[in-house]
Design a protein around this nucleic acid. Sequence first.
DNA 1: GTTCCTGCAAAAGCTTTGCAGAAGA
DNA 2: TCTTCTGCAAAGCTTTTGCAGGAAC
Lengths: 139, 139
Amino acid sequence: MQYQEIAKMLSSRGIRPTQQRLAVYDYLLQHRTHPSADTIYGALIEQNPTFSRTTVYNSLHTLVQAALVKELTMDTEERHYDADIRPHGHFHCRQCGEIADIRLDGDLLQALRPAGYTVQEQEVYFSGLCPACGEATGK
Amino acid sequence: MQYQEIAKMLSSRGIRPTQQRLAVYDYLLQHRTHPSADTIYGALIEQNPTFSRTTVYNSLHTLVQAALVKELTMDTEERHYDADIRPHGHFHCRQCGEIADIRLDGDLLQALRPAGYTVQEQEVYFSGLCPACGEATGK
DNA sequence: GTTCCTGCAAAAGCTTTGCAGAAGA
DNA sequence: TCTTCTGCAAAGCTTTTGCAGGAAC
C-alpha cells in the first residue's frame, strides 16, 4: 500500500495522517511479525533519529482505537501489535519465540461463543513448539 | 480442601509446603475470581501482617511451574491467576471488569488446533458485556 | 490562527533481583 | 546441619503523564 492510500485511510477515520502515524502503521503493514512497541521504535528511530517512544505508544493507541490495529496480550512481558484485524488465532513458540498467525474456522469460533454474553472481541492463543522447532527437538 | 491435603499435594510435587504457599494456593482455591497478585497480597496481609509481595510472586511462580495454577494474560495491566487448570475459556466484562469462566466444548477446542504445531497450552478469551451488564445497558 | 500532535523528561505501576535472616527437612 | 524460602529494599521495564514547542488544516 502506498503512503498516499494509507493517509487516506487514516483521514477517512478522522485520524490526522501525520508522518509518525503513517510510519508506525506502514511498519505494521509490512512486518507481519506482531512486533512490540519497542521493536517498532527500534526500527523507526533508524529512519528518523528524533522519533520518540511516546509517539510510538500514542500512534499505536490511536490505531487500536480506530480498529485498524489489534493489540495482542499473550505475552506477559510486553504488548504486541497486529495490522491484520481479521479474526484469526496466534501461536507463540516457546523455543524460537516467534508468533505465528493461525487460520481459524469462522464457524468454530462462532460456536465457542458463550450464550447470554455480548462478545465484542475474541482471542485464541496457542503456545508450544512451532513445526520447525518441534522437529529440531524430536517433537 | 484441608490444609493437610493441600500440603500433601504440594509435597507430592516436590514443593515445600510452607505457610505462605499454602495460604496463596488456598486463597486461589477458595476465590475463583481470577485475582491478581496484588489482590491476593491484599487479602493475605490481613491475616499475616508480615506477608510480603515478593512472597506472593514467588509462590505464584512456583505454583504455575508445578502446573497447579494457571496464569491469565488477558489483562494488559496485571496478571491474573486461576487455580482451575482444566481447559476452559474466560470472559472479561468491560463494564464491571469481572472475569468469568466459560465452559468450552473439548471437541471444538481440539478442532481449532493447528496441524504441524505441538500445542502445549491453549487459551480462549472473550471480552464485551456480561449478561448482567448487557441487560443494564440495553444490550 | 486553532487545534491537535510530537517528543522530552519524569513518573507510575507491576514485577524482579540481591541478600541476610528464618524456616523447613 | 544444610538446603530452601521469606521478606525487605532497591532496581528494572514497559507504559503513561505533563507540558512546551511544532506540525497539520
